[in-house]
Amino acid sequence: MLNTVILAVSAMIGISLLLNLWRFMIGPHILDRVIALDTMYINAIALIVILGIFMGSPLYYDGALFIAMLGFVSTSAVCKFILRGDIIE
């Protein structure tokens, strides 16, 4: 039962990732691509956590935390670059 639910939720997240990828490809402006990438990071974290539940091992947690941090830092770095044309002020 739980395995069926996990598969269904993984399918939902897979569809989400495809939609994000589509927005990433067509996004008229660079900011649309940035926000699509940010959402892809979030969906990837969800996928990793679900894989952890499926495997019954809490080891995947560290990877999820790592991706969360990378996602935030890269998004804010790109925003800074667009705002000022320079990453480090």
Binding site: L19, W22, I42
Partner: peptide
């Protein structure tokens, strides 16, 4: 998550 991505789309 699906709703968020549909909204983005």
């Amino acid at each position: 998550l699906l709703v968020g991505s549909i909204g983005l789309f």
